[in-house]
Structure formats: structure tokens, C-alpha cells
């Protein structure tokens, strides 16, 4: 079993992540009045229905599209000199200093304690339709996977091939990939928890919830 205490200590030593905010697309940028050092919020509300703090607006084809903070944190760098200029997709417009939340610490620890099933090659991954439906409706933890089960569709070069799951039987505890995004070879796709370890995992989560105090 893994040493949760030392893992937590190492995370506590470096509790911040710095996350760049990039222009998701091209267009003319206008900043939304936030300043460096301002605190911003990510999407919140019970259903994440309230969008995050708006950092800028990028107008493309007469369509002003907001760029919102995707997580809470403090704006460390804001490239205000771009104001009113045309930006290319992927241009860094700000840097967010983000204090790890409880959930993120849990995710980091889960990633070390779950049985990971990794992407064999760089491609886009989807669940097979049956599983996809189940995941979308009742969450990934309602799905039990077995060795040899056809679980994914690998989409690459406009071709789709099925991918068979190999590994321990258990529920899909975590999903690490997003639809329509490429996954590098070797990156984890899902974290599986064998049924006999669920109690153990939940114990670890409870410990993190107690031990980790969220700074603001």
C-alpha cells in the first residue's frame, strides 16, 4: 500500500501550480478589467452552472467570446499589452497561480493508488457507445470493467478501431481523458479500482479531506 503521509507531505511542500491561460482561438482581445494580483474564480455552483471570472473577451467573426478562468487562483501575469490586438490561437494571455484544492490532491493521490489503464498510442479515445451512455447518465463509477472487455474506440488518422481493456476487474473510479482531445501514448485513460480495494481508497480520500486545508 502506498505511503499517503509522505505523499501528502511532498504535495504540501509545493502546494501551488502555475497555469497559463491561453487564447482558445484567434481574434481580437479585450481584457475584462481584472488586474494582476486579482483573485479569480473557476466555474462554481452545484452544477458548475456559474461560469468562472471573465479574464478577457476575444472577438472573432463579430462574435465576442469570453475567456474565463477555469479554476480559482490569483492572476500572476496578465499580458495587457495585447489589448485590442489580434491574437493567434494558443497565445498565452495570463498566468494563474492556483492553490491545490482538496479534490485535486485526491486526484493526484488516486492516480498513484488506482490501477491505471494507459493509452497504447497517441490518439483520441472514446468509450464504446454502451459504456459512454452509462458514464454520461450515471457517472463512471457505475461501470465495471473486466479483462478482455471492449471498452474504447481509438480514433486516429480518421480511422476508428476498438481497444480492449486489459487489467484487473473493478469499477472505473476516475476518467483521465476528454472527448475530442488527443491522449499521448502512455498517459492514463482510466483509473480502475478493484472491488476489494474500494474501502481502502475511500479511506485514503477521507484522510486527505481531513489533512488538507484549502487556503482561501
Amino acid at each position: 500500500m502506498l505511503d499517503v503521509t509522505s505523499l501528502l507531505e511532498s504535495i504540501k511542500a509545493e502546494p501551488y501550480t502555475e497555469m497559463p491561460v491561453r487564447a482558445p482561438h484567434t481574434g481580437v482581445i479585450n481584457f475584462a478589467g481584472v488586474r494582476e494580483g486579482d483573485r479569480v474564480m473557476g466555474p462554481c455552483g452545484e452544477w458548475k452552472e456559474v461560469p468562472g471570472t471573465r479574464i478577457a473577451t476575444i472577438t472573432r467573426e463579430h462574435n465576442p467570446k469570453p475567456v474565463a478562468a477555469f479554476d480559482k487562483g490569483v492572476i500572476q501575469v496578465l499580458n495587457l499589452e495585447m489589448e485590442g490586438h489580434f491574437v493567434e490561437a494558443g497565445t498565452e494571455i495570463a498566468v494563474l497561480r492556483h492553490y491545490l484544492s482538496r479534490d485535486e490532491v485526491v486526484r493526484i493521490i488516486l492516480r498513484k493508488s488506482l490501477q491505471l489503464f494507459c493509452a497504447p498510442e497517441r490518439a483520441k479515445y472514446y468509450f464504446v457507445p454502451d459504456v459512454d451512455k452509462k458514464v454520461k447518465i450515471s457517472g463512471s463509477r457505475s461501470v465495471t470493467v473486466q479483462d478482455g472487455m471492449e471498452l474504447f474506440i481509438v480514433s486516429r488518422m480518421k480511422r476508428e478501431v476498438p481497444l480492449i481493456y486489459h487489467g484487473a476487474e473493478g469499477v472505473i473510479y476516475e476518467v483521465y481523458f476528454k472527448q475530442n482531445e488527443n491522449v499521448d501514448a502512455g498517459s492514463p485513460l482510466i483509473g480502475v479500482c478493484p472491488p476489494d480495494q474500494i474501502a481502502q481508497i475511500e479511506d485514503v480520500i477521507a484522510r486527505v479531506q481531513m489533512d488538507w486545508t484549502e487556503a482561501e
Binding site: R60, E61, H62, N63, K65, Q179
Partner: peptide, 20 residues
């Protein structure tokens, strides 16, 4: 009759592209 693009409210979920 307006020349502009429109964003679908579900674009984050389904990856819908802006429509003209």
C-alpha cells in the same frame, strides 16, 4: 441577415463550432 458567428451554448460539452 447579420454577418456574425454564433456560439452554441453546448459548445463546451459537445465541441460545437461557431455557426455563421
Amino acid at each position: 441577415h447579420e454577418d456574425r458567428a454564433v456560439t452554441c451554448p453546448n459548445s463546451a460539452l459537445h465541441g460545437c463550432m461557431d455557426l455563421w
